[in-house]
Design a protein around this nucleic acid. Structure first.
Lengths: 207, 207, 207, 207
DNA sequence: TATGAATGAGGATTCATTCAT
DNA sequence: AATGAATGAATCCTCATTCAT
């Protein structure tokens, strides 16, 4: 009987190698040969387990995006308050799993391809939606219902924007400071929302 | 007798063609042959005027980034108040010149390359710095000195974050709503900043 | 405990699968993987029973050629007259075993390889010779001795020629009509031969 | 101004090289690299002038088939009688242009692909039809109208059958003898046809 | 007996770039 | 100024075959 069950092992191995080559070479110079060499395997093993290069790349991207959602979910579950829950989602973007050079390389490639790859667009949409849902749930008691979505969307965009700065200038970006800035926005938005609410209470609390 | 003064004309022509092919094909499928065909010229003309493919791409990227800075500068000059100046910078990111499919394609490619191309990193840094300077100048009278940089940086990140949403889902993104959200952040930050200032006046206006 | 006596079963199975894949894919796209899949077996089983791809192909070709000779032999044995014996050989070429899509695919590949594969050339020569012998034996009493070989050779060539038409345009080829045409040639040749013989009797029946 | 008008020259050059490699290596071992080497050119020149390998192969096949039709047409025009016209078509199949090792290699590949390549099937059909028309025209005064098509078809099949023998065993095949055999068939068919006609005159010469 | 795992050689094709005119 | 001609390096992918179990 032959050796069995190598598939999941090899797939993971190859995805890891893809991250690394993508980081080291940039996507324009990422070749199957380099990925295979990085994994210490033959080039043809990639076709064997992934059929095509784009399937491997796509699997890698799915892996990266999934790790962001997981990161947000886990951190949120550990939060002690609603505001901390919100911050947890922001923080997820700056988790090591999202900021390591490999992760940055993957995200940059992925975001650049979203408009050209329907499958990528779908994945990105799912990711956005999930994070927005997390944010909205936590914000529901913090800001008036009419503002929940906008505040959530704002926080998401802000996170992505900060993350992009980190991606571009990793040596100069100060994660803690960005975290503080985000927190500032959240707090002022929350306070201001309630202040407004107090000044202009809605006639009825219609959804 | 050779035609004189063709150089600037041809260069412009080829940059425009590069935008278009980048948009239509995605950067992975952008070839000199396609760019030349788009421009209605021979492939070898590109080498003639730009020496190499990357030189042409780089020229195109410079062109795109310059247009953002110009857009911000012009809009800011037309602003009627400090807050409007700030908003002008945000708006610049959503100007047609930055949101057209061609522009989106160019920016996505450019941002993806920043960590791998020192020249691109330099350009991006210059762009960021310029926009930050615009924002800081306008914010100087709106928020306490100690917060100027952070607020400016926050607004820049927020703009980029919104822009990325637009880039990914152009059909669903609502520019006006994003604009409103950004304005909301700015206003609450400004108000809150002064409220804080009033409550905790700094002992001395340390820089 | 290994199953015994699988060899002939597996070999037959794989030959049948080879016919089918050859038909479905054409020889340029016939791979061991596809043959194995068609047989519902692992690719490596082929190496196990046939050592190499060309051995499997060659076995399949032998099988096909043998079936033609068998077809001719059986039909000839059932013939009621000398002329019917001759027709039997022609008919063998149009038996279902020689005209099915699988058979056509096999023959076309085989004939195309004859000049490049000494083994194939040998097989084809044996087949030709056998059919010629059948024809000559039957013709011996029908035409003068000096014409036996030529008439046999003519009939063989005609059969192959018709068969090729069938191979190329299976939907338009009319087997019965071809059969009639062949019969016509045979009969006129036989009659004419004897007419000539009557007009110009050979001095002696030299072999 | 660059060198001009190389296209037709290169195309012919590459077609000739294709013939040669096909002959030398067999179609399974015919690679673009070998063809280019045979032509003394770079591999990429093939893509340059033919886009794809199959386009080059197809052009070569068209060339070969066209040469058979041309051969038949020219020889027929030079014929001195109706019977000679018929023989001219048979002879065309054995012209050097159709019997050279290169030509044999090309035809064998071509015929093997006809059922898998609609384009090839079309070409083969056109060739058959043209030769049949030539034969029918010449036979119209030689055999009764009702037999013209069948006799023509019989002669065509016979020619192809003989040619296949030549293709398979070039060292043993005797072209002159085959020619004689074909002539014999033609003559006996013609005579017999008229003899039959005399014995059983059709009530009316309906088509 | 049977097969999953793994590989390496080879092939078509793409493409930026050089060159002669 | 402009371009057709030509190339060679590189890439993805296919596939027969080997091997350990």
């Amino acid at each position: 009987m032959p050796k069995l069950g190598m598939e999941p092992i090899r797939r993971r191995q190859l995805i890891e190698a893809t991250y690394e080559v993508l980081r080291r070479e940039g996507f324009a110079n990422t070749t199957l040969a380099k990925i295979a060499a990085e994994a210490g395997l033959a080039t043809s093993i990639i076709t064997h387990y992934f059929s095509t290069k784009s399937a491997l790349i796509e699997a890698t991207m799915r892996d990266q995006v999934a790790s962001l959602v997981r990161e947000a979910s886990v951190r949120r579950a550990a939060a002690a308050s609603k505001v901390e829950e919100v911050i947890a989602v922001v923080d997820a973007n700056f988790a090591p799993s999202q900021c390591s050079p490999r992760a940055v390389a993957a995200w940059l490639y992925f975001w650049g391809q979203v408009p050209y790859n329907p499958s990528f667009a779908r994945i990105q949409k799912i990711c956005d939606r999930r994070l927005l849902i997390y944010l909205q749930r936590s914000l529901r008691t913090l800001v008036p219902e009419g503002e929940v979505y906008d505040v959530a969307y704002t926080i998401l965009a802000l996170s992505y924007g900060f993350w992009m700065q980190l991606a571009h200038f990793p040596n100069e970006f100060d994660v803690d400071r960005a975290r503080t800035m985000a927190l500032e926005v959240i707090e002022t938005r929350v306070q201001s929302a309630w202040a407004k609410e107090r000044r202009f209470p809605p006639a009825k609390h219609a959804g």
